[in-house]
Design a binder for these strands. Structure first.
Length: 328
DNA sequence: CGGTAGCCTGTGTG
DNA sequence: ACACACAGGCTAC
């Protein structure tokens, strides 16, 4: 087992680990603390990664199975560049979005360097099926369960085993629904099982490959054929796995933000109807342009409860949350 | 067709 | 302690 620290050159303004890894895009990253230094442990590309933010670079370690070992800093750096999509220069985009939108400018103070991750398609399909009508903490535990039950073991660190995200054929097994039911997945157990079977019946790997060649509209429609995937989940997958950066997933948070700050005339509904969904997406696409989904993710982060620390006293903290009334 | 009740269950809030 | 609302929605009416 290696203990080498590698170095990926990258400015903080181009990548903020905290907001990017903890912002509800990916459910497999956890914060670990080592000598007061904030580190992030997560799994992607069948490897366990430990990342640490520095001023002008990211320090990282990699754990993987002997079979897959690359042992080459350049190869690892390329995997990270691809995962974080570092070819996209966001400092410049942030300037454009800030010019177009004062609320974005406000959010950007705290949430600089937020990136859309380029995540594995299969992992995102099943992770975001879990996300429906659910809390992030619970979603994370469900994704972890899927990996533990059906994923290949990658390695063991400090007595804890880590698993890759499962292959679709294993999730398509007959026994899956019942197993997930008894493990607290609720009605999503059936969605996962049926979706895995649908993908296998549609050609498995071939279906995935084809999905990647489709336009945004085609891919979204194709994804919505799967049980448990509606417009919102399909947009999450389009945005975070298929490189359709103008897809805008509209959830209750975005609906609330849109109604409060951008589109006050939106009807007051309990659930987002199809028309409201499309109107909100169009509004943000008009406002932010071709990478609107990316900008939207910054707004989403700014509204997440977990980022509302004790720094909400003044208006320069960057959060867009409605101020809670202070008790007198 | 647009709208909405019902769904599993953990977590946060009072 | 012990409800009770509500989660980054979707399906089926």
């Amino acid at each position: 087992m290696k203990h080498i620290w590698y170095k990926l050159p990258c400015k903080q303004n181009e990548l903020q680990l905290l907001g990017t890894l903890n912002g509800g895009q990916s459910f497999r990253w956890k914060k670990i603390c080592d000598e007061q230094k904030e580190q992030w442990l997560g799994v992607f590309f069948n490897k366990v990664w430990i990342l640490q933010q520095e001023n002008d670079h990211i320090l990282y370690k990699v754990h993987e199975t002997k079979l897959n070992e690359l042992e080459d800093e350049m190869s690892y750096n390329n995997l990270l560049r691809s995962y974080f999509q570092l070819h996209v220069n966001i400092e410049k985009l942030y300037e454009e979005w800030s010019t177009a939108d004062p609320y974005f400018k406000e959010a950007a103070k705290q949430f600089y360097g937020i990136r859309i991750l380029k995540q594995d398609i299969v992992e995102n399909i099943f992770s975001f099926i879990c996300s429906s009508n659910n809390h992030i903490t619970r979603i994370s535990s469900m994704v972890e369960k899927l990996a533990t039950f059906y994923g290949e073991e990658i390695c063991e660190i400090d007595g804890e085993k880590y698993y890759a995200f499962p292959k679709v054929n294993l999730l398509a097994q007959q026994s899956v629904e019942e197993k997930l039911r008894t493990n607290g997945f609720g009605y999503r157990a059936k969605y996962i099982s049926k979706t895995a079977q649908h993908i296998m019946d549609s050609g498995g790997e071939k279906w995935i490959d084809k999905l990647q060649t489709m336009s945004y509209e085609e891919a979204k429609k194709e994804l919505m054929l799967l049980t448990g995937i509606g417009a919102k989940v399909a947009d999450c997958i389009c945005l975070m796995s298929l490189n359709h950066l103008h897809a805008i997933p509209v959830d209750t948070h975005i609906y609330q933000i849109a109604k409060r700050l951008y589109m006050p005339k939106l009807p007051d509904k309990k659930t987002v109807t199809e028309k409201i969904y499309n109107d909100i997406g169009d509004h943000f696409r008009d406002l932010y342009g071709p990478l609107a989904g990316w900008a939207h993710t910054v707004l989403f982060c700014a509204d997440l409860k977990k980022f509302q620390g004790n720094n909400t006293e003044n208006s320069s903290s960057g959060n867009l949350r409605k101020k809670s009334k202070s008790k007198k």
